[in-house]
């Protein structure tokens, strides 16, 4: 493996995007969606996640390290591309570009989001409950910042799932790749709904 370092890192980057980061993302959106069923439900669901044993270790192994690796190599990958949609105006070429663009947006969003929630929590400045997010999201600017951040992340994950299937050699034929395009589009719509619905709940209480 030592002689195939670059190959190994790129395959690891691809794998981490889905396992565990993608799975964590879906889990995160589902748990947060409990807010729609009321303050109680959300506090219970978030409290359960918060109360998991070895939480810091879990967070580090499942979330922090994988995202850090994926993001750092991701920024490098963004940097080495020369986008050319003007000359080669094809659907997948646009997806290639948007995958990179949403990667950067997602990075900014996650950095701010983690600072505002997990780090403040860790420093004991805030408590983990419904009102934490309510206070953030009732500000219209932050609401739209979160809307963009969440949709950017869900797009990046869904389209990333499409290229993950190619990277690991699951979808090879043009036909299977086309069907995967539709399937990942549905996934994008479904998890975007989860995320946006939750944000509306926190911001407007409906």
């Amino acid at each position: 493996m030592a002689e195939h370092r670059e190959f190994f890192y790129r395959r690891l980057h691809s794998l981490l995007g889905v396992i565990p980061i993608g799975l964590f993302l879906v889990q995160h959106l589902v748990v947060n969606h409990f807010a729609v069923y009321g303050e109680e439900s959300f506090n219970k669901a978030a409290g359960f996640m918060h109360g998991l044993p070895f939480r810091l270790l879990l967070e580090t192994v499942v979330i922090y390290l994988p995202i850090l690796f994926h993001a750092i190599l991701g920024v490098y990958i963004v940097f080495v591309a020369r986008n050319n949609m003007k000359r080669y105006n094809y659907f997948r070429n646009w997806m290639f570009y948007v995958q990179r663009f949403t990667g950067i947006v997602t990075l900014v969003f996650i950095a701010w989001h983690v600072w505002e929630t997990r780090i403040q929590l860790g420093m004991g400045n805030v408590d983990l409950d419904y009102s934490l997010m309510e206070n953030i999201l009732t500000n219209p600017f932050m609401f739209w910042f979160y809307i963009i951040g969440v949709i950017s992340t869900t797009f990046h994950f869904a389209n990333g799932l499409w290229s993950f299937l190619v990277t690991w050699g699951f979808t090879q034929s043009p036909k299977s790749q086309k069907i995967a395009t539709y399937a990942t589009l549905l996934i994008f719509l479904a998890i975007s709904y989860l995320g946006v619905r939750t944000l509306i709940q926190f911001a407007y209480g409906v």
Binding site: E6, F7, Y9, R10, R11, I77, A81, N84, Y88, Y90, R92, N93, M95, F96, Q99, W162, S163, V166, T167, W168, G169, F170, T171, Q172, S173, P174, Q177
Partner: peptide, 28 residues
């Protein structure tokens, strides 16, 4: 591993070579 799936290649190849199918097959 340098492939990022822009799939421009298969659109432009004058010989109509199924490049992206080849790439996915070689990925596996």
């Amino acid at each position: 591993d340098g492939c990022g799936n822009s799939q421009n290649c298969v659109q432009v190849c004058p010989k109509g070579i199924p490049l992206t199918t080849s790439i996915a097959a070689m990925n596996r």
